[in-house]
Write a protein that binds this DNA or RNA. Structure first.
Lengths: 331, 331
DNA sequence: GTGAAAGCGCTAACAT
DNA sequence: ATGTTAGCGCTTTCAC
């Protein structure tokens, strides 16, 4: 028969000290005589004791848990983000509670409602687009929130935000694609708020270079490679006049490059293509894909730093991190 | 000034009932008169109350948390796995606590030690290779463990395992690559236990087809595209005689396909290449990459099902899920 | 440097 | 159908 999980009392008894002394071993070991420390340490090891963090939390300690809500865990870009956040959190002894909102604001709200019951010390939200209910819930919970990934071009954040500007991304793409002579650009993106900002940046960039207003082609919400082929095919079929395409995701951009290859369209001479995300793959395409790159790791780590600052009582700060063009052969 | 987080007592007071009645609203609402239910519901809404799960756990309820330890969160394959597990867990009201072991058994042990303090109801371990310390710790913790991803070809599991057989993967690859006339195969894999099993399956497959014993070329632990180019380059430089290569990961396989293209090596006539993982990318290469595919989503979901079965008292079961060859043009 | 008492927010067991 | 009592495992005073 297996014994039940040992408690601090068991440790104390075995070590011949009081419970509170055993407790202090973890939080203020310097207060214990070294001989006492040794006794307690031995008891802990003998019992295989690990303190019940739920009880600590109840007794007033911070929960040492951070909640991360992510739009799509399976998206490799978000996976990198989560990975970066996790490792930084681990350095500070914080545990990561994670959930996938599947791009659904209602689900985000529901998950949040549930997970708030864990009393996390802080919250990392991997997108900046929330329902008003979520916004309100978060504010009244009074838990520090860092919105990660996008930087809110609207300027409005719950507490703090760390990320890249969608507007800037569109802008950079336009400035790059419209450099050649007689530029006629197409914007291929989804119909969501995020790509709306990129679209605005894109049109602004085209404008500033004196290029004609860009066309817009709508992509599904969840990007994949095949969409890029379809998009290019349709654009060609519709006899649109264009010589540059910005895809708001590398996957469809890759598809477009491949279709261009198949059709014998010369990149970048006849057509310039640029993607977003700087997938490992992009550099290995033939021709290699130009892509707007975003410092994912840095965003993740800095978001955690910002959160920790807030936990230490500092005032929330906004951090806009720079995106940059990785020049490939496709543009 | 903000009020502190409301408790069940606050709810009870506001609703004019006792604390336990308010508590039952969550767990056994059917026991409450509907008028009482309404009163409590209103109080909860008015206060924005969400029950403190740490307190519930302390009072004897299951923690409703599941711990997942993953080798590398940033690896897209694991990201898909985690995503699948998370959504299945969510269906059952279980929250996911996650950590990244970075392929390091010592770190795995340390993380486990810490995270056991959360008293998770179950544990999902995304690899089957652990240090003996970890093994012991897990056994004495008496928390149900499902090892996910690989199926232990050794037959030994902590409690239960859900995954594909590495041996089978090597075997399938060999059977496929050695089908042509006069096969001379190379195995490109890392120097770890996982690829050791694949190697054994691979040699067995070659054997059974009467092919000569395969050569082995060692790849770094963390795969990338460039490694495949290097590998093929070196194999060619060393004037080894071979006409088929199995890469234990799609990334280097992709690199090899690309180098073959550059060098004008005809795939699959002069050289047959097969990878592992069936990355989205594989199908879109030119020529498309053959790859051993593994049902990642299914593994994740079934692992969670198995865990839930164990939580319900069922005896642990082993589940070996089939891998399959996705035929491309590269072999 | 160590300990005793009280309490964190909840629930199980036993009333009524 | 609802309430009372006791206690989960820890930490916070406040003593010594």
């Amino acid at each position: 028969m297996r014994n039940k999980t040992p408690t601090l009392d068991d440790v104390a008894k075995l070590a011949g000290v009081s419970r509170i002394t055993a407790s202090r071993y973890f939080r203020q070991p310097e207060k214990l005589r070294s001989t006492t420390q040794a006794k307690v340490a031995k008891a802990i090891a003998d019992l295989g004791f690990s303190p019940n963090l739920a009880a600590s939390a109840l007794a007033g300690q911070p929960s040492k848990m951070v909640l991360a809500l992510v739009s799509a865990l399976s998206n490799p870009l978000f996976a990198s983000l989560v990975s970066a956040m996790q490792s930084k959190l681990a350095e500070h002894g914080l545990h990561l509670l994670i959930a996938d909102t599947q791009y659904d604001p209602d689900q985000e709200f529901q998950l949040l409602l549930e997970l708030l019951g864990r009393r996390p010390d802080g919250i990392l939200l991997s997108t900046i687009f929330h329902s008003p209910k979520t916004h309100k819930l978060l504010l009244q919970s009074a838990i520090p929130v860092v919105e990660v990934w996008d930087y809110p071009d609207s300027g409005v954040a719950i507490n703090s935000a760390v990320g890249f500007s969608n507007h800037e991304i569109g802008y950079i793409a336009a400035k790059h694609l419209c450099l050649g002579p007689n530029p006629k650009a197409v914007f291929c993106g989804a119909n969501d708020e995020r790509d709306e900002w990129r679209w605005r940046g894109f049109t602004q960039g085209c404008n500033e270079l004196g290029a004609p207003p860009p066309q817009r082609y709508e992509l599904p919400l969840l990007p994949d490679i095949a969409q890029g082929k379809t998009a290019l095919k349709q654009l060609l079929a519709n006899q649109h006049d264009f010589n540059a395409i910005f895809f708001t995701n590398d996957l469809p951009a890759i598809g477009a490059v491949q279709l261009a290859n198949e059709l014998g369209i010369q990149l970048p001479n006849q057509l310039r293509i640029c993607g977003f995300g700087n997938t490992e793959f992009a550099a290995h395409l033939q021709p290699s894909l130009s892509s707007i790159s975003v410092p994912i790791e840095q965003i993740g780590k800095q978001a955690v730093s910002e959160l920790i600052n807030m936990l230490n009582g500092k005032a929330p700060q906004m951090h806009k991190l720079p995106a940059s063009l990785i020049q490939g052969q496709s543009s």
